[in-house]
């Protein structure tokens, strides 16, 4: 199964400006350092730090692109700069907060459109192993997509 083929997926892709379909309420900015504010469709989401330019394992932060799968709502801001040492479980919590899912509802996150990493996996590790073009693409959905 492919996310792109899923019903209700309105994925603008990496290069197009975002079309934030069913207006996701923009609630706060959990990642203060890297949140330049709502609705910035630029390729480089970050306004911080010149050191965040090229993708290198030495950096303490990495670029993450969050894409919906299935019927999950689209995030207004898809591209985030995340501390390498943050865990994937933290990303799930972050997405859950943003798409206003009840805490008991599940959010599933996938890397490579194929596997769900263990919640205690470092973002930096996933970036090193599965990142491409200087970013790590993470799909999220409310039901298991790639079971």
């Amino acid at each position: 199964m492919s996310a792109e083929g899923g019903e209700g997926v309105k994925d603008g892709g990496e290069v197009e400006p975002e079309t934030a379909g069913d207006a996701v309420p923009h609630t706060g900015t959990p990642d203060k350092e890297s949140a330049p504010g709502p609705g910035t469709p630029e390729k480089e989401s970050t306004t911080v730090a010149p050191e965040a330019a090229p993708a290198s394992p030495k950096l303490s932060k990495v670029d993450v692109l969050l894409k919906p799968a299935g019927n999950a709502p689209i995030l207004k801001k898809k591209r985030w700069t995340v501390d390498r040492h943050k865990k994937i479980g933290w990303i799930s919590d972050f997405i859950r907060k943003f798409i206003r899912t009840e805490t008991e509802d599940s959010v599933f996150v996938y890397v490579n459109q194929s596997f769900a990493p263990s919640p205690d996996t470092d973002i930096g590790t996933l970036f090193d192993c599965f990142g491409s073009d200087g970013k790590l693409v993470i799909y999220y959905c409310r039901t298991q997509a790639w079971g």
Binding site: V111, N112, S114, P117, S118, C129, W146
Partner: peptide, 14 residues
């Protein structure tokens, strides 16, 4: 089971 299969899938991705 979910964890096991996810790990197998990750390994095959590599």
């Amino acid at each position: 089971e979910a964890h096991f299969m996810a790990t197998v899938k990750e390994a095959d991705a590599l």
